[in-house]
């Protein structure tokens, strides 16, 4: 297996606080990799460093061997790093069809076409239809996103990230806040992501982690505490104390 996304000695400080502390990390091709850690462990900061929302204080981020540390958010998306957000970030006045069309049009480089008709672009339409079908959004494609149930919105959040055709997909707590009734469909969506997409899953929910992840990295106070296969990590005494132990108190 080869590494797709890597970080080398990544550090991010906010004033006196070190949110990411010397993290060297590697996401393998086709991985189902979970990033876990107690609240405030720096998981979201780490994702923001990977996607270009934040610039590291020091260290490097590389994608298939190429340095992307200095690249903007949109440049990283174009190179194949897409993400979902812990709290839905959707185009709420649009329909799912419009939102997916937008992402597809950007991916195909149509964004500066001022006079292109959306319904005249066969390639974009085919791709949009493909995404809508894959995420089972056909029946609701013409409804305003803001009016849809939360579970569906969560589904669209993943579909929109996937529509950028990423090689690396970062899922930030995909099932957070989804009611039990809609949860199964969402988990199926995550499970059905194609194998050639490398997935980094940021999660709290142990049930989901042990179902999907083939590898786990535990982040505590911005540092990598340990990394390994789920069964090994689960037995790790330090993890139990730092993470599971703490969680048990809550």
């Amino acid at each position: 297996m080869s590494a797709v996304l890597q970080t080398f000695n990544l550090v991010k400080t906010f004033g006196g606080i070190t949110a990411t502390d010397d993290v060297t990390f590697s996401l393998e091709k086709g991985a189902r990799h979970a990033l876990i850690g107690p609240n405030g462990a720096g998981k979201t900061t780490f994702v923001n460093l990977l996607t270009g929302v934040l610039r590291p204080t020091s260290g490097r981020v590389s994608l298939v061997g190429q340095d992307i540390t200095g690249l903007s958010r949109e440049a990283r998306v174009k190179r194949g790093v897409a993400r979902t957000f812990q709290i839905n970030q959707l185009f709420r006045t649009m329909t799912p069809l419009e939102m997916i069309s937008l992402v597809t049009a950007e991916r195909l480089g149509r964004g500066m076409r001022l006079f292109q008709r959306l319904d005249a672009d066969g390639e974009a339409i085919a791709e949009t239809a493909d995404i809508l079908a894959r995420f089972k959004l056909e029946d609701i494609m013409d409804q305003r996103i803001a009016t849809l149930p939360y579970g569906k919105q969560r589904q669209i959040e993943i579909a929109a990230a996937f529509a950028a055709r990423p090689s690396v997909l970062l899922l930030d707590e995909p099932a957070a806040g989804v009611p039990e009734a809609e949860r199964r469909e969402l988990l199926e969506t995550v499970a059905a992501l194609p194998d050639d997409v490398s997935v980094l899953l940021i999660e709290h929910d142990m049930d989901i982690i042990f179902r999907f992840a083939t590898r786990i990295t535990v982040l505590v106070n911005g540092r990598v505490l340990t990394e390994g296969e789920p069964a090994v990590v689960a037995r790790d005494a330090a993890v139990k104390q730092a993470y599971l132990g703490e969680a048990a108190h809550v």
């Binding site: 970030q89 959707l90 185009f91 709420r92 006045t93 649009m94 419009e98 939102m99 069309s101 937008l102 049009a105 950007e106 149509r110 964004g111 500066m112 076409r113 001022l114 006079f115 292109q116 008709r117 959306l118 672009d121 974009a124």
Partner: peptide, 14 residues
């Protein structure tokens, strides 16, 4: 109504 216009609405929304 173009892809450009759609991207603007996207920026406005989020």
């Amino acid at each position: 109504n173009s892809p450009f216009g759609l991207s603007l609405r996207g920026i406005r929304d989020n």
